[in-house]
Design a protein around this nucleic acid. Structure first.
Ligand SMILES: [Zn+2]
Ligand SMILES: [Zn+2]
Ligand SMILES: [Zn+2]
Ligand SMILES: [Zn+2]
Lengths: 162, 162
DNA sequence: TGCTGATGCGTTATGATATTACATACAATG
DNA sequence: CATTGTATGTAATATCATAACGCATCAGCA
């Protein structure tokens, strides 16, 4: 099941599966999956939405795991740089990756009504953007693809908005 | 000539052309192209790069056109909402549109070495992202497409980076 | 003319996001 | 057991953005 995010699902196993995958990745690549890093990923996974760094920090602080911004940002940097989480630029927020370990270019569908975020996939080097980059002689290394709109639930709920 | 941005060009006429186009648009749509708004666009056009709001504000302040952040942000909101400028989310910065008036979905090629930004075009509702959105029942209204990499000049200058 | 609403601007204050810099802890290496 | 590299703790600061209020201007209208 390769859900892209707005459907109902077995959240508990979704969290467990992602955690296990990340653990395996860290073990395989000798990455230190420290308590803070692990906890931040757990928070992101369990909330299943994009969260600001300070929002995460609030949780860490309550749990005695850290109280200053760098604690949260460092953990997030680790997760993002290893693709266990992604930054949603449009929201200045972070979200757990829905398929850690697989190399991929995330693309996000962001609901402007309920703030739900789903992770899809982009292939930046293909399509019209890749063509433009080729013509310009630009070497794409990384891409941010984020669509803002209405998620299926909100289209139903507020048909006027659709 | 539909340049997408890294080449040398006749910058003076590039600025003039864009300004004229925006003036015409404003006249046609009864938009108030006030001195502050005009000056902010001129600054963005003449610098021909992505600039932070405070950087723009510094210029305005020197010229006696405004000294507090809301002055810059309000002018930028106007320019962005009418598509005379765009926000580059990845840089938290703003850049003049290279073809104001035409309805379009901008996509940016951002050089990580020299910070040059070129505007290309995306068609978010097509391609793999549009397909994913359709399948998910998500209605795309707007898209952020930003590629980070090396521009042609920097690829030459630092071949090791390429 | 005088009222009224809409829009833009001036200013203060504050909020939200992110980083620098330096000190400390600790495990792995030799 | 000294050295080194990596992670964490903490204070301070930098950067990006908005809320809220009041005033000025101008168009539409009684
Ligand atoms: Zn992902
Ligand atoms: Zn929604
Ligand atoms: Zn444009
Ligand atoms: Zn460059």
């Amino acid at each position: 099941m390769d859900t892209i995010g707005f459907e109902q699902h077995d959240h508990k196993s979704c969290v467990q599966g992602a955690l296990s995958a990340v653990e395996a990745q860290c073990a395989a690549h000798k990455l230190q999956f420290t308590p803070v890093r692990r906890r931040v990923l757990e928070i992101l996974l369990s909330e299943h939405r994009a969260m600001g760094a300070y929002e995460i920090l609030d949780v860490l602080r309550d749990e005695g795991l850290g109280s200053q911004p760098p604690v949260a940002y460092r953990a997030l940097d680790f997760l993002v740089s290893h693709r266990f989480a992604h930054k949603v630029e449009r929201l200045n927020a972070f979200i757990a990756c829905t398929h850690p370990g697989q190399t991929h270019t995330p693309a996000f569908l962001i609901c402007r009504n309920c703030d739900a975020v789903a992770e899809a996939h982009a292939e930046p080097t293909r399509g019209i953007l890749g063509k433009a980059a080729d013509e310009a002689g630009f070497a794409i290394e990384q891409a941010v693809v984020e669509a803002v709109g209405l998620c299926p639930n909100c289209r139903e709920g507020h048909p006027a908005c659709a």
